[in-house]
Design a protein around this nucleic acid. Sequence first.
DNA 1: TCGGCTAAGGCGAACGTTCACACTCTCGAT
DNA 2: ATCGAGAGTGTGAACGTTCGCCTTAGCCGA
Lengths: 333, 333
Amino acid sequence: MLRRPSLKDVAREAGVSFQTVSRVLNGGSRVAESTRLRVLAVAEDLGYRRNDNARALVTNRSRTVGVIADASPRYGPVSTLAAVEKAARDAGYNAIVTTMSNPSPDDAIRAFHEFSKRAVEGIVVIAPRMPIADVIQAVPVTVPVVLLAPGETSHDGFTVFFEDQELGARLATRHLVELGHREIVHLAGSQEWLDGQVRLRGWQAELTAANLAAPAVRYGDWSGDSAYAIGRRLLAEGLPSAIFVASDLMALGFLRALYEAGVSVPRDISVVGFDDNEFAPQTFPPLTTVRQSFGIVGERCMEILLGLVQGTPVDVTPAVPKLVIRDSTTAAR
Amino acid sequence: MLRRPSLKDVAREAGVSFQTVSRVLNGGSRVAESTRLRVLAVAEDLGYRRNDNARALVTNRSRTVGVIADASPRYGPVSTLAAVEKAARDAGYNAIVTTMSNPSPDDAIRAFHEFSKRAVEGIVVIAPRMPIADVIQAVPVTVPVVLLAPGETSHDGFTVFFEDQELGARLATRHLVELGHREIVHLAGSQEWLDGQVRLRGWQAELTAANLAAPAVRYGDWSGDSAYAIGRRLLAEGLPSAIFVASDLMALGFLRALYEAGVSVPRDISVVGFDDNEFAPQTFPPLTTVRQSFGIVGERCMEILLGLVQGTPVDVTPAVPKLVIRDSTTAAR
DNA sequence: TCGGCTAAGGCGAACGTTCACACTCTCGAT
DNA sequence: ATCGAGAGTGTGAACGTTCGCCTTAGCCGA
């Protein structure tokens, strides 16, 4: 295996010392223009590329961030991941990504250790599930950590940032209230996920604000099948006039139960989802839902992290989701 | 900022040379048990963690792979990414991930350069879109590259591996043929994506094998809306008895057009999708579709890459997708 | 003539590892 | 007693950078 050219190789070829090459390639301070050009030409010619590992060793700055993502293929987390990576790249950082298939403390600790060995300068945790905050607290970590976890609060060890899903849930519920619905059921997501808890809370809060009683919560587990089953049960028990479902996928499963029974949406019942998945406009009828701005979340997340790295003040006010009104909701009869 | 403890710190604390510490932490060959334990205790105590960058520098092995992923949030690529990362991790590698929002040559070259600076030992490119192979060929690259791109062929510079989506398309089509359908339309995905081309090809091939004429292809762009529009057109022109849609999302859009028109599936028309997205079981009726085994693809992809790194022979026969029969297909009248 | 300034570039050390050796014991065998 | 083997441990160099400091040459002014 051929060794890649190093500074010294370039230096030899250009007839200068390797420090001069370093100078040319970095700041370029105090180098004769002719030398500069020659060095650059040689570097280009040899296909020289800096060894970032060596650089990290001596500068003690790896220009690397670690990202821990939930391996669940749910739409939201995945989009966030892509956005975070892009933001990191734009800031001149590389992202080392690792996934947690189930959010076990061990997995998280393993990830932190690995990142530590790579000398990352900061860590982003995309952790929509339960008790990640406690875990992080348990690992002594020496770099800034940004936790993307709805409803958590910042601690000494880490900064929390999130999209205001509680607000999202309130927007969804408010929309139904404003359409005149009085009985608004919530089909909740798994309460092991923070998203699930927060969306439930938002629904409750908005009902309270509207002086409406909260019907019994139906608990699903994010799966379409769980929502389908609940749909069947509700059909048997009698449908409410409106329902706020904690995710689009669950909404779809719920709709399936309705189709089967010949119930018409939104004539017989109004349905609101959450996520604005790619398929939400394609359901029948197209689904009214809540859109999170993952791109913005990713960007701001990196902004916050780099702010922490550089010690500049950061703004962690939550990102704001938006209600997307399509055809699955209508005024109460 | 406090420096992290190094081998030397541990050595000093344990009263041995840093060399001995290194031995303990690596192979552990020929170290007195008492020393071993003492060193381990001290290391644990100090929270020592190896600096992988320094290690990479001297061993010339970074234990790092680079992954280039298409930033499109399509289900398939995303699942593949997660699987690749997990396989890399299991093999003791870290994954540096970067995404390409649009598969421009510049983006790819940038990614290769960045990886080169990080001294990755291998690169995985998850590139379902068009001409990535040419791009890679243009960049002089010194490490093994595995290209996850259906229908490409291996070159000097890189090894191609993929799931046999053409076979998948044939399975889907064959299923319809076996149900007695004679007029099987294909609603194709964007032909700028290799997946789109390959699925189209599989449909054609199977029709030919069955001695059936191929009706005019309808071209969509992966979006549900494009499929919806095509659905409306087909409704106007007269529906075929069966249709093979190039993706589940498009199938959903197509179904929407049918619902609107009051057409019943599968009674009036059989529909097969592709991908087995998470929502496929939740459509109404649940969608017959083709499932790709992303997990296996990811694993084998890493296997191949590491095989190339270590110079052991690799098996690149394509992974095999599976037909998942649900309720959107039935025998021809 | 000399001192001093500046621009250009070289020298050596350091970062935290691993690797190839070399050294020092303690045995048991000769 | 001497030798050799092997277990246990230390030494020095190297990896490719950056950084602080030093050297050299050229120039200007006194």
